[in-house]
Design a protein around this nucleic acid. Sequence first.
DNA 1: GTATGTGACGTTATCTCATTACAAGATTGC
DNA 2: GCAATCTTGTAATGAGATAACGTCACATAC
Lengths: 136, 136
Amino acid sequence: MNEHVHETADLTKNQTLVMGALTRSKGPLSAYTILDQLRDNGFRAPLQVYRALDKLVEFGLVHRLESLNAFVACRHPGCDGDDTIAFMICERCGQVNEITDTALAMRLKQLAGEASFALKKTTIELRGICRTCQVA
Amino acid sequence: MNEHVHETADLTKNQTLVMGALTRSKGPLSAYTILDQLRDNGFRAPLQVYRALDKLVEFGLVHRLESLNAFVACRHPGCDGDDTIAFMICERCGQVNEITDTALAMRLKQLAGEASFALKKTTIELRGICRTCQVA
DNA sequence: GTATGTGACGTTATCTCATTACAAGATTGC
DNA sequence: GCAATCTTGTAATGAGATAACGTCACATAC
């Protein structure tokens, strides 16, 4: 499976619109924020957003930030969905940094293995203040 | 700072009730589930639960599971609040396993350091199927 | 002892996040 | 054409969390 198999062409109209909103945004967006941004495009109900988001997450184009109940466009072309991704979330500016680290992923897999835990999905979210916001 | 400085004696009535509900439970509980369980004890509004939970989390007696919007009593006496804790959450039986791992914590701190990210809190949640549920 | 501050508590209302349920179009395969 | 499947639209509701009020108990300062 290649990276980001689903390109714009594969997306439905609603999925494209939601993807666009996320791509344009500097930081994560909540489903309802996306809804508001897309009202002019005919969006009227949360479900329209959630359905598109579900698919986009499934495709690996969008990630869900559990600790924020929000979503970000994947900025990290290398991730193929199976990857263990960590997010660094700045609590001041809201920017999100996406990182993958082999050592981290290996250790987690090992820990799961030792417990005979069949790992399906990992969530790693780091909260703090990013470099830029510290100097400011 | 010692482990779990706040013992039962330090807790208020509401905090004790909420803590009791979580301790009795085998798995994580949502705030509203706790509310329902404590109606007979005079609980009437979500805020009563949330206020108690806030304190219990602050004391390190309870952890919040971001990917579940739920709370668990800390089963891991060693954690002193500053610790990096990982949770293994079984999607079949709902049981939660709490683990700390030095290598994991170190790597995360290192990654944050390399990005000059001032780390405040880390969330690590592993979803999957636990050993017991796999055989069944 | 009164004033003042602080922290927990209770209640209502409201806000944000997410899903269920149902109907209508659109698309593909036969 | 017809069935199967997928996407869509809409309304209603469920679930999670907080804001804004006021009250009470208890501490400390004067």
